[in-house]
C-alpha cells in the first residue's frame, strides 16, 4: 500500500474537519477525492503532506509510519517521493517560469545538467517552452496552473497530490492538465486528485472516494459506487401512436419498476443492472418507435443520492474543504 490513513481525526475547536477518516491508495492508482466545501478534502491533504497535525489516527506512506507532527515534519526521504499541487498558485511571481522550476528542483536535490534537462522536459510537456523566461504574473490563468503543476513534478514524485488544480481556468487549459495527469499516471505516478468537477474525476480516476462531513461515505470505482447507491435507471421511449395497453405490457417486463405515458413519451424506471432494454424494445416492436434514450447514473447522481446535495452546492460556502 502506497498510502494508508487510518481512523484520522482532526478538530478545529467545535468543528470536526475529519471524523475517523480512513483512506488507502495502491501504487499506480488514480484516486479521486470528491466532496463539497467543508467535506474535509483539504484538511486530509494537509495531513497527508505533513502540513497539519492530526488529533488522532495513523498515517503510513510508502510503507513507513511517518508520525504525526505537522508543520512539514515528514522525513526528507518521504518528502522526496511526494509532489503537492496546492489549491491556489504556489509560485514566486517575480521569478521566471524556468527559475521557479529550477528553484523547486534544487530544493529536491536536483542540480546541474540533470536539473536543466528536467526543467526543459517539464516546460515542454506543459506547453510552456516558449514562455520559460517570462514571469508568471504575465501568464494566463491556465498557464499559471500548468506551471503550478510543473513545480510539483520537477522531482518526479511517486505520489502526486493535486488539490483542485483546474479551478478557474479555460477548457483548453483544463484539457491540457487532464491529459497531462492521465499521462503521468500511465507512466507510473500514483495520483490523488480532488475536484469539484465530476467529469474530471470520472475521466481520470480509477477509484473514487466521496467525502462528506469529514468522512468517506463511498469508496470504489464509479460503476461500483453507482451500483450500490443508485437503484434505478431511466429509459425514455417515444412512440408514434401509443396505446395505454403498451404501458401495461412494459410494466410486465422483468426489472421494470414503473412506466408512465405522457403524450407520445413513455418514461420507464428500471432496477440498475437489469439490462432489460432489448426486452422493452421487443414489446414495443408492433409500434413505430420514434426514439429511445437510456440514462445511466452519473457520479453527480451518486453524489446527490449519497449526500442529498449537489456537489457544487457548497462552492460558495464554507472555508475548510
Amino acid at each position: 500500500m502506497l498510502l494508508e490513513m487510518n481512523d484520522t481525526v482532526k478538530r478545529y475547536r467545535a468543528l470536526t474537519a475529519l471524523d475517523h477518516l480512513s483512506l488507502r491508495i495502491q501504487p499506480g492508482e488514480t484516486l479521486g477525492l470528491l466532496g463539497p466545501n467543508g467535506a474535509g478534502k483539504t484538511t486530509a491533504i494537509r495531513i497527508l503532506t505533513g502540513l497539519t497535525k492530526a488529533d488522532a489516527g495513523e498515517l503510513r506512506l510508502f510503507g513507513k509510519n511517518v508520525g504525526n507532527k505537522g508543520g512539514g515534519a515528514f522525513p526528507a526521504s518521504v518528502k522526496r517521493r511526494i509532489g503537492l499541487v496546492p489549491q491556489d498558485l504556489a509560485l514566486y511571481e517575480t521569478l521566471s517560469a524556468r527559475e521557479n522550476l529550477e528553484y523547486f528542483g534544487k530544493l529536491y536535490g536536483i542540480y546541474g545538467a540533470e536539473l536543466k534537462k528536467r526543467v526543459d522536459e517539464t516546460l515542454e510537456v506543459l506547453g510552456l517552452s516558449d514562455v520559460g523566461k517570462k514571469v508568471p504574473k504575465k501568464f494566463s490563468g491556465g498557464m499559471k496552473r500548468r506551471l503550478n503543476i510543473g513545480c510539483a513534478i520537477i522531482h518526479k514524485p511517486e505520489l502526486l497530490i493535486l488539490d483542485e488544480p483546474t479551478v478557474g481556468i479555460d477548457p483548453q487549459s483544463r484539457n491540457h492538465i487532464l491529459d497531462f495527469v492521465d499521462e503521468i499516471n500511465r507512466q507510473g505516478t500514483t495520483v490523488l486528485y480532488t475536484s469539484h468537477y465530476m467529469e474530471e474525476v470520472e475521466r481520470l480516476c480509477s477509484r473514487v472516494c466521496i467525502m462528506d462531513a469529514g468522512r468517506v461515505i463511498a469508496d470504489g470505482t464509479v460503476g461500483q459506487i453507482a451500483k450500490s447507491t443508485i437503484f434505478e435507471e431511466m429509459i425514455t421511449l417515444k412512440i408514434k401512436e401509443p396505446s395505454p395497453s403498451l404501458t401495461e405490457s412494459i410494466k410486465k417486463v422483468q426489472g421494470v419498476i414503473n412506466c408512465t405515458l405522457e403524450g407520445k413519451k413513455f418514461t420507464i424506471t428500471s432496477a440498475v443492472g437489469s439490462g432489460n432494454l432489448p426486452r422493452i424494445l421487443e414489446v414495443a416492436t408492433p409500434y413505430t418507435i420514434l426514439g429511445v434514450s437510456a440514462q445511466s447514473a452519473t457520479l453527480e447522481d451518486v453524489f446527490l443520492a449519497l449526500t442529498g446535495k449537489r456537489l457544487r452546492d457548497g462552492m460558495d460556502g464554507g472555508e475548510a474543504s
Binding site: G50, L51, A76, F104, L107, Y108, C151
Partner: peptide, 15 residues
C-alpha cells in the same frame, strides 16, 4: 505562510 510556503514546507529542506 502562503500556498508557496506550503510547497516549501513539503519539500525536503530543513527549517
Amino acid at each position: 505562510f502562503s500556498e508557496t510556503g506550503e510547497r516549501m514546507l513539503t519539500a525536503p529542506v530543513s527549517k
